[in-house]
């Protein structure tokens, strides 16, 4: 059972950052994962009063506040048009509407959870994470870092023209994915993000000669399978996940190439 001694609704990012330097204090996002833990939080730091629950769209980018609920991302017309529906597809299988109205994008990304559909999807985008002290960090770099005591403020998704598709496999609806796959192509490079391996999502940038236009889907899928480290847990074996990496990559490439039509 989780015990919280003190609750502070931070009045500024500086205050939140300062409070968060103490190891026994915790920033709370949607609290859905934190609630499942046991132990004592000395001070729960709530960012919900800092105006970080909005998605702002300009000609150049989407700026997504850390406290934006996953449901808002799922329903955002601009993000879904830009990602060809991949954003919604990555989110709609996560538990239920009531859960996604609470879970936040900041909490999902900051935890760098192995099961995270959200991290898998954002890794495939031209995205930068804004940290209060760390500044702008490319999402790939951020995902590789260990969680520290900084505050995730916003996620910036540049409107770089892209093709992308998101697919996941689950043993049962609303469960964690057995494997998640985001295929995206921008700036002439094909990128494949594989999540729930079950380790946290990893991003593979394919060689230039491996594009849907000049390589077979089997060649692309085989490359991804060979370069994806998978593991076993109660949901699936490493071998099954490895096979899924091949299948989902192939299907997602078909989608972005328009070859499934």
């Amino acid at each position: 059972m989780l015990t919280i001694k003190k609750y502070v609704k931070a009045a500024s990012l500086d205050e939140a950052y300062e409070l968060n330097q103490k190891r026994t204090n915790r920033v709370i996002g949607g609290m859905l994962w934190l609630k499942m833990s046991s132990g004592t939080v000395q001070t729960a730091i709530d960012l919900s009063g800092l105006g970080l629950d909005t998605i702002e769209e300009t000609d150049e980018e989407f700026s997504i506040g850390a406290m934006v609920p996953l449901r808002d991302l799922e329903l955002h017309a601009g993000l879904n048009a830009y990602t060809h529906g991949a954003m919604r597809e990555s989110l709609r299988h996560i538990v239920g509407v009531q859960f996604r109205n609470l879970a936040t994008v900041g909490g999902s990304l900051y935890g760098r959870f192995g099961f995270s559909d959200v991290l898998t999807c954002f890794l495939g985008l031209d995205a930068v994470v804004e940290l209060h002290h760390g500044g702008m960090v490319p999402i790939k770099e951020f995902a590789a870092q260990k969680p520290d005591r900084d505050i995730l403020v916003r996620i910036h998704v540049k409107k770089t023209p892209l093709r992308c598709a998101y697919l996941s496999q689950r043993n049962t609806k609303t469960d964690f994915p057995v494997l998640a796959c985001m295929v995206s192509e921008w700036d002439g490079t094909l990128r494949v993000s594989i999540g729930a391996r079950p380790q946290k999502a990893s991003l593979i940038e394919l060689p230039k000669d491996l594009m849907p236009e000049n390589a077979s889907l089997e060649e692309i899928a085989s490359y991804v399978q060979e370069h994806t480290v998978t593991g076993s847990n109660m949901r699936a074996s490493a071998a099954y996940r490895s096979r899924l990496a091949y299948v989902l990559t192939k299907r997602a490439c078909q989608q972005i190439g328009g070859m499934d039509k």
């Binding site: 949607g30 609630k35 449901r71 009531q98 859960f99 109205n101 609470l102």
Partner: peptide, 26 residues
């Protein structure tokens, strides 16, 4: 008790949420 079943659903400012996972102070 794992934020999965939806039995505790209430509306918070009109939106359905899981009351088992929301701090009252929020």
């Amino acid at each position: 008790e794992t934020s999965n079943c939806g039995l505790c659903t209430v509306f918070l400012d009109g939106k359905p949420v899981l009351s088992c996972s929301l701090l009252t102070v929020r």
